[in-house]
Amino acid sequence: MTLLPPVSAHACTAIVLFAHGSRDPLWRAPIEAVATQIRLRQPDAQVCCAYLELCAPSLPEAALELAAAGARRIKVFPLFFGVGKHAREDLPLLVEQLRAAHPDVVIDLLPAAGEYAQLTALMADIALA
């Protein structure tokens, strides 16, 4: 597990980029690239990647590390294009377990990436370019 620096006083909100996971180590590159972009745009941002299966850290491991580093709010951003069983059923259950395990931390579950009109428009722009 990667040890994160303590959350700064003005940055008590952390972000978890949540994805499915894969045995292929190259699969993680786009997920980690999003985390890098967040850090470049907001250097004091607490952001980490977490995975449902086949990769580490898991969502509970990431949340535990962020809470230990001082996060008082964690935004879980599912990097799924579609809203299948994992996004509709598995992830909400995981988030409820996190809320029970960390009652002093507000845990927000954001819509899946594919539900954002900005992403849909960006993908259309890329396809049309």
Rank of each mutant, 00 (worst) to 15 (best):
M1A: 13
M1H: 11
T2R: 15
L4N: 02
P6C: 09
A9F: 10
A9Q: 14
H10W: 05
A19F: 00
S22G: 07
S22Q: 07
S22V: 01
R23N: 10
R23S: 13
D24Q: 13
L26H: 14
W27A: 15
W27F: 11
P30M: 05
A33D: 14
V34S: 01
V34R: 05
A35D: 02
Q37T: 10
R41W: 00
Q42P: 00
P43M: 12
D44Q: 14
A45D: 07
Q46S: 14
V47H: 02
C49R: 06
A50D: 04
L52M: 14
L54A: 14
L54H: 14
C55L: 15
P57H: 06
A63T: 15
L64T: 13
L64S: 15
L64C: 13
A67N: 11
A68V: 00
A68L: 03
G70P: 12
G70W: 06
R72K: 15
I74A: 09
P78M: 12
F81E: 02
V83F: 04
R88A: 11
P92L: 12
L93V: 13
E96Y: 00
E96T: 11
A100Y: 04
P103W: 09
D108E: 15
L110G: 04
L110W: 08
G114E: 08
G114V: 04
E115I: 01
A117I: 01
A121S: 11
L122I: 06
M123H: 02
A124P: 00
D125F: 06
D125N: 07
